[in-house]
Amino acid sequence: MLALQGAFALHLQAIDRLAATGLAVRGVPVKTAAELAECDALIMPGGESTTMSMLLDSQELFAPLKKAIHGGLPVFGTCAGMILLSSEILDGRSDQNCFEALDIKVRRNAYGAQVESFETALSVDGLDEPFHAVFIRAPGVEALGAGVEVVSKHQEEPVMCRSGSVLACSFHPELTNDDRLHRLFLESIAGATSSGKATG
């Protein structure tokens, strides 16, 4: 769990709940390259992407993390995490870095300011029942590259995408006590089973 800033504590609780159901995962906070090296998969939380981008630099974590993701580390980015995983950021600071791990163009705060936050039920590929999604200053996906699969849409716009071992969504799956997206990531992408893998 990337733990520089933002909603990481709630994600860690979701991982703990899944571990309690018998899924072989263990959530640990990651603030340094040494902690990253111990992980088999990574979740990047919502928060402020501008701030996280700077803290990735100051913690000397940007380069090792980029290398790990491009080397196949399974990663799930939510809200700000999606922005960091994208290949191009619109309406961000010109010096804001992204990992170019998911070939999408994202617009920051595409769904409006804080007061325009909303909740909605989304149909998600791989889930039988709709998922209750909370959008807060959420990024919008404006362009999709080849090989990017849309996993969920809201009003015809993609809000959850996957490419290989990289999964990202515009909303905050950690704010509800519904752990199905965490399970989806951990089982289908990170390959967690009942026999031993540590998850960051």
Binding site: A3, G6, A7, G47
Partner: peptide
């Protein structure tokens, strides 16, 4: 989404 941060 401001947790773990500084508001100035």
């Amino acid at each position: 989404m401001l947790k773990g941060g500084v508001i100035m």
